[in-house]
């Protein structure tokens, strides 16, 4: 197991190297002047030029690149041009927000997705099954920004139950966190819940058809017990993979959701960084985020291997 883990971790290194090179090339290919973005509206050309000089943006690209990699190997990801704070600090400030929101969304996804999927499988071909699957289908077809807008119009503007946006940290005020995070979490979760429900149902059906379940049922074991003990345990294996995918989808989805609900998470940070040509922030922030995503995937692989003794990773 340790060897597998090491090999998987080692394989992440070239991926991250390519990611960092791609990021550097891409962000510097984007036209537009970061100094103009930082200066904002109605700055004079003198002011823009001063910013450019102060931030070292008048240096040739090659020397910026060498500088960046030089610092990277010393563990320094530089400073955000826009925020003035170190990239690592800015990322670490935002990460808990996105993690908390994703965790909330993940809980919603798991509850709705697993319950819907299991119930549909047990009631296969009944109206319950059909309604559940139609709902799941609508869930995966609903763009999350549209769902978010509809919820803002309904729950924040019309009914005034929830705030329109903003964020309160859980540690500051758990109820405030719940109020500000619920709509974003639902808009993130519904699509994934639909996905999970469909997969859970089909996996469960496959497992339920297998011989040993039929045997167990034939032996007269009550079917609920069978489901819980055998079917679900076996179905968890493929579902684990899906959860890994869901986690990376949550990070990707946070880009839109955080922008829509004004949540200061990693998605908003990186989107603003790209739009404002905040080179160090994009480079460093994307590197950290992709590294985390790769780690999540490795963790999922390891869980998978632990759950299913048949799986042997040979690095393919």
């Amino acid at each position: 197991m340790g060897a597998i883990l090491l090999r998987r971790l080692a394989s992440a290194v070239p991926i991250l190297a390519i990611v960092s090179i791609l990021t550097f090339g891409m962000i510097h290919l984007i036209p537009g002047d970061p100094a103009a973005a930082i200066a904002g509206l109605s700055a004079t050309p003198e002011q823009i030029a001063n910013i450019r000089r102060d931030l070292g943006l008048d240096q040739p690209l090659m020397s910026q690149l060498i500088h960046w990699y030089g610092n990277l190997f010393q563990g320094d990801l530089g400073r955000s041009l826009l925020l003035g704070q170190p990239v690592v600090e800015a990322t670490m400030q935002r990460l808990p927000v996105t993690v908390a929101l994703s965790a909330y969304a993940l809980v919603i996804t798991l509850v709705i997705g697993l319950v819907t999927g299991i119930v549909a499988a047990l009631r296969q071909n009944t109206w319950i099954d059909q309604v559940a699957m139609i709902l799941a289908m609508i869930g995966i077809s609903l763009p999350n920004f549209y769902l978010g807008l509809l919820m803002i119009i309904l729950f924040a503007v019309q009914l005034r139950w929830l705030p329109t946006g903003g964020y309160v940290a859980f540690t500051d005020d758990p109820l405030g966190w719940l109020a500000t995070s619920t709509m974003p979490a639902i808009s993130l979760a519904l699509l994934l819940a639909g996905l999970l429900a469909r997969i859970t149902r089909s996996t469960m059906l496959e497992v339920l058809r297998q011989d040993y379940i039929r045997t167990a049922r034939a032996k007269g074991l009550p079917s609920r017990k069978v489901v819980v003990k055998h079917a679900l345990a076996n179905a968890m294996i493929p579902i684990t993979t899906v959860i890994g995918i869901i986690v990376s989808l949550l990070i990707s989805g946070s880009v839109v959701t955080e922008t829509l609900f004004s949540i200061p998470g990693i998605g908003q940070l990186l989107t603003q960084a790209v739009l404002n040509r905040d080179y160090p922030m994009v480079q460093g922030g994307l590197l950290i985020t992709t590294a985390l995503l790769v780690l999540v995937n490795i963790a999922v692989d390891v869980c998978y291997a632990l759950l299913d003794p048949r799986v042997r990773y040979d690095g393919a």
Binding site: I152, A156, V157, R160, P163, T164, G165, S262
Partner: peptide, 13 residues
């Protein structure tokens, strides 16, 4: 609060 609609709603509530 970058969303204008959200500013209106926030002031109202």
């Amino acid at each position: 609060v970058t969303e204008p609609g959200a500013r209106v709603a926030g002031l109202r509530t």
